[in-house]
Design a binder for these strands. Structure first.
Length: 152
DNA sequence: GCCAACGTTGGC
DNA sequence: GCCAACGTTGGC
């Protein structure tokens, strides 16, 4: 099993929004970054565990856990001209952008804040705490996953 | 709202 | 293929 971290701006889509979705499941659409795309298309497997992370907000950090319930498939928003995520270079016969479905498992007992993660020497290798990191989907090592859960 | 970091685009 | 301009991310 693999572990991941996915960022979302709670103004756009929060952990509570995920809870309120039918089946507590949502497709992770709108990602327009090739590294993140490649991970969703090629590497994320059903049953993989995901940290749900709130970015660009007052209370930044890990807020919950979800799991992958559907592996990479084309992001339909790229085909819809009216949508902000429309990309004319992606077409249904040769899709450029992919997404996965994730299902809510639980909230963490508290928000595990970015500052706390940054200050933890055990997590120094995480892309999340590296300067200038902009990946919205990133892998988490098993060691880092377990360590973060121990902070709860 | 600001702005540093960094990915993408496109002219050459 | 280089690289300047531009757009976006995301912490602060």
């Amino acid at each position: 099993m693999n572990y991941w971290l996915m960022k979302s701006e709670p103004n756009e889509f929060s952990i509570d929004d995920l809870i309120n979705m039918p089946e507590q499941t949502e497709h992770w659409d709108g990602v327009r970054n090739y590294q993140a795309r490649n991970m969703m298309r090629d590497q994320m497997k059903t049953g993989d565990q995901v940290f749900f992370y709130h970015s660009n907000c007052k209370d930044i950090g890990i807020v919950g856990i979800a799991e992958v319930v559907r592996e990479g498939y084309p992001d339909h928003l790229a085909f819809e001209p009216e949508d902000p995520h429309y990309d004319p270079k992606s077409d249904p016969d040769n899709p450029r952008w992919f997404m996965v479905d994730i299902r809510f498992i639980r909230k963490t007992k508290r928000t595990i804040g970015l500052q706390e993660l940054k200050q933890d020497s055990a997590l120094a290798d995480m892309p999340l705490v590296r300067k200038g990191n902009r990946l919205s989907v990133m892998p988490v090592s098993e060691q880092a996953w377990k360590h973060i859960l121990s902070l709860e």
